[in-house]
């Protein structure tokens, strides 16, 4: 077996997994708190990537340092996406908080459709190339092209986000409020937690990480269009379900499992069926263990 090829696939899988993890975090956190599959989450990721591309394009003329441009674009994109996340929650989900779950889910599908077409109409339906802005690191020259500097940045950023997020949820005041809200919304309200604020904050964090994923993956793959959010969103959701939805370590674990499966599946079997692997995996996991790898089984009550 070709070891170099194996490592390439492994690292490719890890990179994929990192991006899925960044998106899946938003899904899992939102689900944990308001028990809603935020279908529009993939669109947030796409909007993050698009905004970054637009800012990069607009700043490209000024002749600034590419790394600086990338940073500015990243910051603006992430902030804008967080804004989108909160706005979507306000418009499409908040009025439905006490409605049947099906209503909120259909509203989320509607929002996803709307956002996709909004970007399609305001921008373009073509694939746009994303300029390379991250320079190749010098020390990678003798690594033999197994790993690129973008991949290193993606892996490092994901790791950092995970650590910060875990600390945030474990030790800060708002993190505690989030955990309380996800356990029992009514009780949380009774003990004086402003659940509207907590929910909005969850959407901010979720959109923030998704947009970060969007910016990073586009600088890695190098092209985007309005449709990327849908498939990435579905796969991240698969990852979140794999790990057990509502659980943050579960989402990360599920993402890496999914990323590696896809990478090895396409590398050793066939690249035509890339998306089928993810979906088959989902069906299998849900059939065998509906609560996911790290999820807890819940008993239904009347």
């Amino acid at each position: 077996m070709d070891l170099d090829y194996f490592f390439q696939l492994f690292l490719g899988g890890m990179t994929r997994g990192s991006i899925y993890a960044l998106i899946a975090l938003g899904y899992t956190m939102v689900y944990g708190i308001i028990k809603l599959i935020n279908f529009a989450h993939g669109e947030i990721y796409m909007i993050g990537a698009f905004t970054a591309l637009i800012i990069v394009g607009a700043l490209g003329m000024t002749g600034l340092n590419p790394v600086l441009i990338f940073l500015i674009a990243g910051v603006i994109a992430v902030l804008t996406s967080a804004g989108y996340g909160v706005t979507i929650e306000r418009i499409a989900y908040k009025p439905l908080r006490n409605a049947p779950r099906l209503s909120a889910l259909i509203s989320a599908i509607g929002m996803s459709l709307f956002l996709q077409n909004y970007v399609l109409l305001a921008q373009t339906s073509n694939f746009l190339p994303f300029p390379t802005l991250i320079p190749e690191f010098k020390f990678l020259a003798n690594a033999g092209g197994i790993i690129s500097s973008t991949q290193i940045i993606i892996l490092a950023t994901t790791a950092l986000v995970m650590v910060v997020l875990t600390l945030l949820i474990k030790f800060t005041r708002i993190g505690k409020a989030m955990r309380a809200t996800s356990q029992d919304r009514q009780m949380a309200q009774l003990v004086g937690i402003g659940i509207n604020k907590v929910i909005a904050f969850t959407f901010v964090i979720g959109s923030f990480t998704a947009a970060l994923g969007g910016v990073l993956i586009c600088s890695h793959i190098g092209q985007i269009n309005f449709y990327i959010g849908f498939i990435a969103g579905i796969k991240a959701f698969v990852a979140a379900v794999l790990g057990g939805i509502g659980s943050i370590p579960g989402a990360v674990l599920g993402s890496f499992v999914l990323g590696l499966t896809e990478s090895f599946g396409t590398g050793y079997i066939s690249s035509d069926y890339e998306d089928v692997f993810a979906f088959l995996f989902l069906v299998l996991i849900l059939t065998i263990r509906p609560s996911g790898i790290l999820g807890r089984e819940k008993k239904a009550k009347v």
Partner: peptide, 20 residues
Amino acid sequence: MMILTFPIMVIKVNTIENIV
């Protein structure tokens, strides 16, 4: 909304031909 949609609604870039 004007602030939020500013990048996507106002600026249109074509990164192939470098037109803004």
